[in-house]
Design a protein around this nucleic acid. Structure first.
Length: 145
DNA sequence: GCCAACGTTGGC
DNA sequence: GCCAACGTTGGC
């Protein structure tokens, strides 16, 4: 799960009440589908994007599976989408809980790993803010921590 | 700030 | 349905 640290960082999540937040504002169909594929208690890496040192910075846990994203209903919200209604919600979010901050694993480090070359995060033109990871990739990255 | 990649919009 | 225009993402 990717976030720009200037808008929401792993530190922000750690400082949140009960260290949990809805992961809302996702407005891409493919990313939405990945959110909906998440299951209660799944773990995810928290990735800092669009910053001086992009990379994995921590681990979060899904503590509530996909439910309608209220920010799409709010006209004053930056992520408002009039095409998403309470009766027919188009966008969804999950709740994530802070698990830990980990050693920073830089994007460059991930790119240097031969066994991670097929990682979705590393594919050309990837722009999804939420994406799946294989158990093999997860295990390989855990060895850095 | 630049630029490549990609998604969305809307005219036709 | 095609495609140009535009907006966004995100590494560098």
């Amino acid at each position: 799960m990717k976030s720009e640290p200037t808008s929401f960082s792993i530190e922000d999540l750690a400082k949140s009440p009960q260290q949990k937040e809805p992961w809302d504002g996702v407005r891409n169909y493919q990313a939405r589908n990945f959110l909906q594929a998440m299951r209660l208690d799944d773990l995810a890496f928290f990735y800092h994007s669009n910053c001086p040192n992009p990379g994995i910075v921590g681990i979060v846990q899904i503590i509530k599976s996909a439910y309608p994203d209220k920010s799409a209903f709010d006209p004053s919200d930056h992520h408002y989408d009039p095409k998403s209604t309470i009766d027919k919600p188009r966008w969804f979010c999950v709740d994530v809980k802070f698990v830990n901050k980990c050693k920073h694993v830089a994007l460059a480090t991930l790119k240097n790993q031969a066994n991670l070359s097929s990682m979705r995060l590393l594919q050309r033109g990837n722009r999804l803010s939420v994406m799946p990871i294989t158990s093999e990739e997860w295990a390989a990255i855990m060895k850095f921590l």
